[in-house]
Write a protein that binds this DNA or RNA. Structure first.
Lengths: 160, 160
DNA sequence: TATGAAATGCCATAACC
DNA sequence: GGTTATGGCATTTCATA
C-alpha cells in the first residue's frame, strides 16, 4: 500500500530524469521540465522526504558485483493457506543472500534469486530456509550460468 | 571481461559508501575513508570515468514502478549448440519488456523476467519472442503476484 | 603518479515576494 | 511557483613527495 502522495506531470518528468542521473544540476532539470530552479529543488526534496525517492545511489559495474554463484530457486509450498505463505515470505526477505523474491502463480509458488560466494553457502541457505521448513514441499534450483540482461533501474516504466 | 582497472582499499571503501548514498559530500566521505577531500573527489571522478561507476541514479519507490504485470518465463531450447543460444540471448536482450534474463542450468535453459502493461502485451511478447522462434522448444510462465524482495543495489557484495 | 591545501566558481539552501 | 542573498561544496590549480 503506497502512501497517497499525489504526483503531477512535473513530478513524473523529474523522476524520469533523476532516475537516469541524480547528479544533474537543478538548473539543467529546470530547463527540461519547464520550471524554475527553486521549484525543482523543492519538488525533489519533497519527493525524497515523502519516500517516493527511496535512495540515491551510485551503480557499480555489474562485472564487479555478485561474484560467486547466482541461483534461481523455484519453491513449491504445502497448501496451508496464505498466513503461512506470508510467514515464509518474511523469512526469505530477511536473508541477505536473497536478491529477489516473487510470489507467483503457475507450476510453483515462489521464485527466489539468491547470490552466494560458494556452493557451501548455498547448501547452508537451502538447509536453513528450505529443507528445515516443513511448509516447503519441494524446490528446484536453476544455476545461473550467464546474466544476459540486468534490470536497468531507469528502464522500468513509471506509473501513478 | 572487465577492463583491468586496479582498485585499492580506498576505492573499495568509497564504492561501498557511494553505493548507499551518492549524494554524501566528499568532506564526509573523506573522514570515513581517511583521505583528504581532494583525493576523494579525484578518485570518484576516476571511478566514473573508468566505468567502474556506471551510473548515478535516484531509486524510486518500487510500488510506483513496474505497474501492470510481471511475468517470469522458463524457456527450454532445442539442443542446437551454443551459437543459437547466443542468438536467442541477443534477441531477448533487445526487448524492452525484459528486465532480467539468465542463462541457467537445470530443468530449463533461460529464465526471463518480463514486465508488460497488459495481458495483450504479454501475448504479443510470447508470440514474437517465443512462439515464432523455432529454437524455442517450450516455455512456461509464472505470473508474478507479489514482489517480496527487490534487489537492493547496495546489498550485493563487492569484489575485486 | 599520487597526495593535501588554497582560490575560484557553481550550486543548493533558505527566507523573501 | 518565482526571485534573491547566503553558505556549502566541487572544481581547479598549485606545491609536494
Amino acid at each position: 500500500m503506497t502512501k497517497s502522495v499525489t504526483l503531477d506531470n512535473f513530478d513524473h518528468k523529474l523522476l524520469e530524469l533523476v532516475r537516469q542521473n541524480n547528479l544533474e544540476p537543478a538548473r539543467s532539470l529546470a530547463e527540461k521540465v519547464g520550471l524554475s530552479e527553486s521549484a525543482v529543488l523543492r519538488r525533489l526534496r519533497r519527493l525524497r522526504k515523502e519516500g517516493v525517492i527511496v535512495a540515491d545511489v551510485a551503480i557499480v559495474d555489474p562485472a564487479r558485483l555478485n561474484a560467486g554463484l547466482t541461483m534461481h530457486v523455484l519453491v513449491e509450498m504445502e497448501r496451508e493457506g496464505s498466513a503461512l505463505f506470508n510467514a515464509f515470505a518474511a523469512g526469505v526477505a530477511a536473508r541477505k543472500e536473497v536478491l529477489s523474491a516473487w510470489h507467483v502463480t503457475g507450476s510453483t509458488d515462489f521464485l527466489l534469486t539468491v547470490t552466494v560466494p560458494t556452493m557451501e553457502a548455498y547448501e547452508a541457505f537451502t538447509n536453513e530456509v528450505l529443507n528445515d521448513d516443513r511448509r516447503v514441499r519441494s524446490f528446484m534450483t536453476l544455476v545461473g550460468i550467464r546474466e544476459i540482461v540486468r534490470q536497468d533501474p531507469s528502464r522500468a516504466p513509471l506509473v501513478e
